[in-house]
Amino acid sequence: MNDVVLLGIGLLTGVTTVLFGFGGGFVAVPVLVWANAALGADAIRVATATSALVMLVNAGFATAVTPRRILRALRGSRALLLLLAAGAAAGALATRHAPAGQAHWGFVVYVALTIVDLLLRPGFLRRRGPAEASHGGRTEETRGARTEASRGVPRPLPAVLGAPIGALAAFLGVGGSVMTVPALRRAGHPMRVATALANPLTFAIALPATALSLCATGAGPLAADTHLRLVGLVDLRAAGALLVGALPVIAVLRRRPPRIPDRAYAWVYLALLGAVEAAMLLAG
């Protein structure tokens, strides 16, 4: 896959980073599996490692340009962030020792289960705020200012979720947004806030995963018979092309975000997961 195609995919990862909290993992992993197909079963290992670097930079930049008033929702979440990072370190180490195909099919199965969960379990496609739940299902428009005030204080994510989310996200190379965005939405945040808050959480996951991937040994033989030049398990050429496409898009969309109705936003998120699932099945 040439750099022009990777640049175009980078543009898409910029869009998904801002609009859906996907720092690159869900979009980048299927593409990188194709790009590194010459590695055979090891392509998924390189893809997850490379996507971790892409997610780290994208999520860090997106967080830096997010309004402070939105990020204040994560006050008091230090334990959650630390456990996300600790879990991610464990997940990245597990990836290096697991059979190569395990991560690929784990990715496919996890996304499929997530799609089913979002379709069947209430709280994602139709968000219910605290006031609505406790007043017989009446909407915020009928409750007025009182309802708005109640819905303005979403529940924090439990810190105990950090370790399993971080471990699974790093193992599969997905960045965690597929878990954190639905959790944040069910905690009471609208989609635009949930997707924005997913970026700092993704950064906490991607940092240790990237560090371990860059320091991985034994990657040289993977690329010996290919055009690839790996640093650890990371394909820096592919990562660079993806980031060149993504970062300008992130800067523009953070300044001028599109206005999307909340429920439509949730359906588009779900449709994107379906597209990624199809791409990974074809890549397999």
Rank of each mutant, 00 (worst) to 15 (best):
L201S: 07
R155H: 10
A223N: 06
F203T: 04
V174G: 03
A64L: 12
P130S: 13
A92R: 00
V268F: 12
P122K: 09
P248W: 02
L184N: 06
A35S: 07
A35Y: 02
S77M: 03
G24I: 01
L161Q: 10
G21Q: 09
S134D: 12
P99L: 05
T50V: 06
L11W: 15
A279Y: 02
M280Y: 01
R186F: 08
Y265I: 09
L6V: 03
G137K: 03
G144S: 07
G136K: 01
C215F: 06
I260L: 13
A241E: 02
A223D: 14
V252R: 15
L207R: 00
I44P: 01
A238E: 04
I250C: 02
P130Q: 11
H135Q: 13
W34D: 02
V181G: 02
V54T: 14
A275S: 14
R237F: 04
L157Q: 05
E277S: 10
L56Y: 02
L81Q: 08
W105A: 06
S150N: 12
R155I: 04
A211H: 00
L82Y: 09
T195N: 13
G60M: 06
G14E: 06
G60H: 01
R127G: 08
P67F: 05
A89F: 07
P130E: 11
G240T: 10
M191N: 03
V249L: 13
F171L: 14
G137H: 04
V4W: 11
E141R: 14
A37E: 08
G40Y: 08
S134F: 14
L197V: 10
I9C: 11
Q102C: 12
R237E: 11
G245V: 00
L84F: 10
V252C: 09
F107C: 11
D3P: 01
S134M: 15
T142L: 13
L157D: 05
L39P: 03
R45T: 02
L212T: 01
R256N: 15
V160M: 13
L56P: 01
V5I: 15
T16I: 10
F20C: 15
L80E: 00
V46S: 01
P67Q: 06
I205T: 13
L247M: 05
P30G: 05
A183Q: 08
P30L: 09
A246H: 08
L84G: 00
L281F: 10
R68E: 05
R151H: 12
V178E: 08
I205E: 07
A163I: 01
L12Q: 03
R96A: 11
R155S: 12
T202V: 15
D3W: 15
L273M: 10
F26A: 15
R75T: 08
S213Q: 00
P99V: 05
G144T: 09
A49G: 07
Y110A: 10
N2A: 12
R121A: 14
L247F: 04
F22K: 01
L273K: 00
S213N: 07
I260N: 04
L53Y: 01
V65A: 05
E140G: 12
V4F: 08
I9V: 14
H104N: 09
A238K: 00
A238D: 10
L7A: 04
L228I: 05
D42H: 14
R121V: 15
F107H: 06
L120D: 08
T16L: 11
L71N: 04
R255K: 14
M55A: 12
M280T: 06
L83Q: 12
A59C: 10
P200W: 09
